[in-house]
Amino acid sequence: MKNSKECIDACLACMIECEKCATMCITMGGMEECLKACRDCADICTLCAKLCARDSQFCDDICALCVKCCEACMAECAKHGEHCKACMEACKKCAEACKM
């Protein structure tokens, strides 16, 4: 099984950065796709952390989905400026932790 502590920590950190990035997207306007990607990623990261914490039978499945969401969020954030950088970094770390 995956290193759940590392995965949980990375998911929670990613959720926080995605929420911050989504808030910036709202205030800046015109960044709907980034906003959607960040919100989806934040929600999946939260769910992933919860399922890993309870050692769910679906942990591997949700981790795979989390990787996919993190990669999609990174790709969207890469289209934007400096305010998306922390989100991209958190997504990268989360995807790596969830692949382990």
Rank of each mutant, 00 (worst) to 15 (best):
C84M: 13
K85M: 11
I44W: 00
H83G: 10
A42T: 01
M15D: 03
T23V: 09
M28G: 13
A22Q: 08
C70R: 05
C63N: 06
A72R: 09
C87L: 08
K36H: 12
M74S: 06
C41I: 10
C73A: 04
I16C: 13
M74T: 03
K79T: 02
C63G: 03
C59S: 10
G81I: 12
A97K: 03
C73W: 05
A42H: 03
L35A: 02
L47G: 14
C91E: 04
K92N: 10
A22G: 04
M1N: 14
A86E: 12
L35P: 05
C91I: 00
M24H: 05
C70S: 02
M74D: 03
S56C: 03
E76H: 09
E33Q: 10
D60W: 07
K99P: 08
K85W: 12
A95F: 02
A97H: 01
E71Y: 07
C63L: 01
C91T: 00
C11I: 10
C77M: 07
E33T: 11
A53D: 08
L12D: 09
V67T: 07
C18P: 01
C87V: 07
C77N: 04
V67C: 07
K92G: 08
C7D: 08
G30P: 08
E82V: 10
C38L: 12
M31S: 13
I8L: 11
S4V: 15
A95K: 00
E17W: 08
K85T: 12
C34H: 00
L51M: 15
K85R: 15
D43P: 02
M100G: 14
A95S: 04
K85V: 14
H83Q: 14
I62H: 00
I26C: 10
C45K: 03
C48S: 10
N3G: 10
C69R: 02
A22E: 04
M74L: 13
A72M: 12
C69I: 07
E19K: 06
C45F: 04
M88L: 09
K36F: 07
M74K: 10
A22I: 05
C63F: 00
C66Y: 01
C18N: 06
L47N: 13
A42V: 05
I16F: 14
K50N: 13
K92H: 06
A37K: 01
M88T: 06
C14Y: 00
C73N: 07
A78E: 08
C18L: 07
E19Q: 11
D43W: 00
M74Y: 04
M31I: 13
S4F: 13
L47P: 03
I44S: 02
F58N: 11
M1E: 15
H83P: 12
I8R: 02
L51D: 02
K36P: 08
C25Q: 05
C63W: 00
M24G: 07
E76D: 14
M100R: 15
A72L: 14
M88C: 03
A37T: 05
K20I: 13
C91G: 02
A97S: 11
I44D: 00
I62G: 01
K20L: 15
C91V: 06
D61R: 09
L51V: 07
M31C: 13
K93C: 04
A10I: 03
M1T: 12
T27S: 11
T23I: 14
A72S: 10
E82W: 15
C52P: 06
